[in-house]
Design a protein around this nucleic acid. Sequence first.
RNA 1: UGGGGCGUCGACAAGUGGUAAGUCACCAGAUUUUGGUUCUGGCAUUCGGAGGUUCGAAUCCUCCCGCCCCAGCCA
Length: 569
Amino acid sequence: MLKKNDEQNDSRPESLDFIRTIIANDVKNNKHDSWVITRFPPEPNGHLHIGHAKAICLNFGISLENTKSRCHLRFDDTNPDKEEDKYIRAIKEDVKWLGFDWGDHLYYASDYFEKMYSYAEELIQNGKAYVCSLSPDEVRNTRGTLTEPGIASPDRNRPPEESLDLFRRMKAGEFDEGKYTLRAKIDMASGNFNMRDPAIYRIKKASHPRTGNSWCIYPMYDYAHCLEDAIEEITHSLCTLEFEDHRPLYDWYLDELKTPCHPRQIEFARLNLTYTVMSKRKLLELVEEKRVDDWDDPRMPTIAGLRRRGYTPSSIRNFCDRIGIAKRDSTVDVALLEFYIRDELNKTAPRTMGVLKPLKVVIENYPDDQTEELDAINNPEDESAGTRKLPFAKVLYIERDDFMEDPPKKFFRLAPGREVRLRYAYFIKCTDVVKNPNTDEIEEIRCTYDPATKGGNAPDGRKVKATIHWVSAEHALNATVRLYDRLFNKENPLDGADYHNNLNSDSLQIIADAKLEPSLKSAKAESRYQFERLGYFFVDPKDSEDGKPVFNRIVTLRDAWQRIQKSGK
RNA sequence: UGGGGCGUCGACAAGUGGUAAGUCACCAGAUUUUGGUUCUGGCAUUCGGAGGUUCGAAUCCUCCCGCCCCAGCCA
């Protein structure tokens, strides 16, 4: 859990973003007695994603950076049609996993229903709200257009006593859904639609996850949210850009109701990521249409998905710090997220060897029954990680991509007649290629080794252009490795008629029989390893069993060879 | 054709009248028992465009252009 004054912000730029600048000024000027109280207010109707992580890091981050401060976790549960308890549990888990702590400040909008109700009566009594009998269709038809003002509801001038009576009967459950609404009396001619007598309460005969059946009227977002903020004495209410033109209404309610506290709403741009969709609706579709396994599928941009992919909380926090906070619509390159997980895992992940696409190698001049234990470094970036033993024998597996029968100019790896180093082992030279006579497919290659190069150095000083990874065939651990790639193959998946057309059909490749070094047999769930030269892998917590780890590829290593190939050799 | 925002390198993003930070990506080179890491160098004479003010403008003014959001009894 992150604490105040933790040095967690090494990734944050020196200069303050515009929101932190406003807050710093407020603190300096003693506004709110120099308190800074923020909140993260999710609606429990879906899972959190990386975009929410940006908001979480902002709100909780600001709280951590200030002295008289706190950040609330508040569930904005004002629409029982869509909300479920399972989402509440998942959201709490995700926020906690990201490293943030709301302490005692866990709240629910539904806890304020009673207060909100009395505030509504106050509005009616002051002639600022009325019960309207228009149907949803009629409301839509009288709202006006971009250029024309709306038409006043016939009930707009209903006397307060009458509205009050109707409102109480709405609450008592006397009317069907849709029969009446409570509306604010503001300005049907406003250029801002939010001010054209917006609904405050609607009748909804739904059971609420927390209040059960005690209410059959529920407050609308604009009315509820500003009151939630005010009741909790939030000082800075941070939200995304699309709420910018709701701000006048936010302020209107708080002004009319003379609440003890009037938080300042500040809007910032939401996060978009390349090769990713972020809307709750589309994410839900991917799950329901079985395009992915579930909300926590490692290809999903959900917090649960990233967690299961193997991303660390700190890598996500560093990413969120780095992308900044501004008002410009933007799409961040997913490569930046990948950079932060590589950056962290390079320093912390133990190195191992594993062969994903095995090619059998027989060392012809190596004794048939001999096995050796060779020393390997666990992490060249961290000496304290120590070393381990690797079994070596006559028959090995190497990566198919590390051998070419007829290599192009810049291919440095194994080829007929060529010598390479087997990492931490010996120099080997390819002497022969054995092919399947029917398919012409390479079945195995034959090599000789130089016993004098044990450990990987030639006493005569001769050099080799490549070092490749390998696993002893008889000692290898057979394991399932899942290779995850971007879910979409288009930078903007929404480009085109249907985003489904942009789904990457190769976003998951399951390798059922990868050959891994034997030490990996005891890999613990949720641990992370580098498979040298291939990438970083995470031991899946759901599908792994004792002695049978299942690995998820978090991200590949940067690959210069691939770049050479792509650039056309 | 109303209202609210936003336009600085391929992507983020500083900069708030004194002569374009940083990060990712990319390119080149060095080091390297991971074509990884690390290191070095390169990468906006220019800030959506055009005028204007000024000794001086990304920053101020004017006009224009482009993009995003809003007509749920969703949040």
